[in-house]
Simulated assay, not measured.
Amino acid sequence: MHNSWENLSPPSFYCSSCCQQIIIAAYLKGIPLEFTYIDLGAREHTTEEYKQYNPSASVPILVVTSENGEKTTIRQSMTILEYFEERFPDIAPLFPPALRDRVIVRDLVNIIAIDTQPPTNSRIAQRVKSIRGKLEDQVGFVKQAFTDGFRAYESLLTKQAEEGTFSFGGSLSMADVVLVPAVDQALMYRLDLDIVPNVKRIYLALKELEPFKAADWRNQGGTPAKFRIQDS
């Protein structure tokens, strides 16, 4: 493997969109990962022991152990993705070479990572529900946040000069890595993707590719049996 001199071990939760991003990027770059599974439903991330590793009480964490035993801990998903890209820039690069093009990809990435994911995070969604104790408040809030984010993403796709297979032309980019997990989360809330036809088209194309199949939340080591994808 490309990083045989180090061990990369991320605590992961089976349906975390942030964990899914890491799995996709690692698969694309051929980076082996050794997983430790955290059960957010059982609130294992809120223990004092876990918070010593990540004060934000979130997943994933990437622990990189070098050949001499030195450990580097990375606690935010976007930082992990940047680490992968900077560590292995020539292997399946996730940003195009031209500066102008990288700006477009980064705008797409941040529509998801900054504008869409934070308000749809389960921690925030639960707080919205707790205001009146009504599930419909949570569902309505999250679906609107996804709708706003995906429509903004769709708008940038429409403004691009050419219609490509993926978010930026015909090459996979960091935008695709963050888009698919977000759409998966939105589909859990039964969001109708027909409101964003280009996002839907790109999402369906990406879900046919092995890195995105490998990262599917229904196909993880910690996925409960009732949710797992059954072999046909």
Rank of each mutant, 00 (worst) to 15 (best):
N3Y: 13
P10F: 07
P11F: 09
P11T: 11
S12G: 07
S12D: 09
S16E: 04
C18R: 02
C19R: 01
C19S: 08
I22L: 11
T36Y: 01
D39W: 03
R43C: 10
T47R: 12
E48H: 11
E49V: 14
S56L: 14
S58P: 07
I61V: 12
T65K: 10
E70R: 09
M78R: 11
T79S: 14
I80W: 00
F84Y: 00
R87H: 08
F88S: 12
P93Y: 00
L99Y: 11
V109S: 08
N110C: 09
I112R: 09
P119I: 03
S122E: 13
I124S: 10
A125M: 06
R132T: 15
R132G: 11
E136W: 11
V142N: 05
K143V: 09
A145T: 12
F146P: 03
D148P: 05
G149K: 05
A152H: 03
A152Q: 08
E154H: 01
E154P: 01
E154G: 02
S155T: 08
T158F: 12
K159A: 10
E163G: 11
S167D: 06
S167A: 06
F168I: 02
F168G: 02
G169C: 00
S171G: 08
L172I: 11
M174Q: 10
A175Y: 05
V177L: 06
D184S: 10
Y189G: 02
Y189F: 15
L193D: 07
L193M: 07
L193Y: 04
V199E: 05
R201I: 10
I202H: 08
L204N: 14
L204S: 12
F212M: 07
R218E: 05
N219Q: 12
G221N: 01
T223A: 09
R228E: 06
Q230L: 12
D231V: 12
